[in-house]
Design a protein around this nucleic acid. Sequence first.
DNA 1: CCTAAACCTTGCTCTATGTCAAGACTTTAG
DNA 2: CTAAAGTCTTGACATAGAGCAAGGTTTAGG
Lengths: 210, 210
Amino acid sequence: MNILSKGKETAFHRDPILKMNEFDPLYTYIEKLHPLEEKVKEKIMDSFSFKKVAKNEFLLQEGEICKFNYFIVKGSLRLYKIDPKGEELIRYFALENKFVSNLTSFITGSPSEEFIQANEKTELLYIPKAIFLDLVESLPAINRVYRNMLENAYITSQKRIYQFQGLNAVDRLRWLLEEYPGILTRIPSRLVASYLGITPYTLSRIKAEL
Amino acid sequence: MNILSKGKETAFHRDPILKMNEFDPLYTYIEKLHPLEEKVKEKIMDSFSFKKVAKNEFLLQEGEICKFNYFIVKGSLRLYKIDPKGEELIRYFALENKFVSNLTSFITGSPSEEFIQANEKTELLYIPKAIFLDLVESLPAINRVYRNMLENAYITSQKRIYQFQGLNAVDRLRWLLEEYPGILTRIPSRLVASYLGITPYTLSRIKAEL
DNA sequence: CCTAAACCTTGCTCTATGTCAAGACTTTAG
DNA sequence: CTAAAGTCTTGACATAGAGCAAGGTTTAGG
């Protein structure tokens, strides 16, 4: 599969049998929200495409309009903004089995203020905005997926606000490690520090005091 | 009007002529999003109720399920959570011409983790969840209102995360004063400090240095 | 209108976190 | 496989903001 798929995703897509593997995590994700018939699975398979991206590859840059909705099969992405001092402020880490897009840009069609970038070699399923919105209307399962995306995005934001407002650096780190166990072995500390809103120096020190 | 309406909101509701005044801010709000016919205004007037609440009165308490959507005609509310140390963490100030509810509880029907409380004497229009959701389906104008609520809630949250992540106390205060000019003369400093995630001592000091 | 309670300010001190510098370690590309 | 670049750790020091105490001011309710 490595050799066959390398840089040949388009050809690869046309073979439903081979594609099965890549789509399984998406089906599993959806089935937790809504039952999925075979016919619907086929429709989904026709609508999403698979792709592999390299570490540090961009899926969205500041100023672009977010035209795709992504589902992470393997790997991870980060969403961030560059502040006036040129610092990267990471708002969100997306790991396996998450849908990701810049919702603000996706919904309103306005240019994104954020970047979406791969933290590591990552495998994605992606679907163009227009096709996705059609499926939201035509497939109850995808309607449920979209609703879930919006609700989770909102709820996650609320939690994060309260963390910044109420917790110090050590407690924010503890919370992160509960939410994303093993993240420190997977994502560079520099990025984790940005997510926590502290310097890499401080992160290094508080890791020491557990 | 003072004498007539005092403690008699229910009777008051039944008189469409008198109600006009109270509903005008809501109509103006909606008309910015979607044209409003007279028939639709009447439907809205039948669906919302008016009420006055005193300073510090609760509209929602922790553990309750959020069953109403509120529109602020005059006055202001705050949404907050009590942290494990017993501190009030204010997530949002809602002033005139804003819709307010605990969206998480409103959407999912789960018990609220937040309180909604009046900062001052406040006049509200409110609508029960079920009736509101009916209007979302039946009236395009209200559908647009709901969409706007969800989008704004999300966008506001994103901004707030980046403020905590990227700005120090002085810059957060500056931002707040741009966003809500005059808030310091209207809302007790103690509450503004909580919103900014700092102590009242620090707020007092940074106010001095402008 | 008066008093108690709540609120705001300010000095002093303390602590968490930032900054800078230097060296060790790790990853990457050639 | 190795050099260069990037990353992590740690010490010394600087600073923003917290916590406490005390006094002045405003607010609310009887």
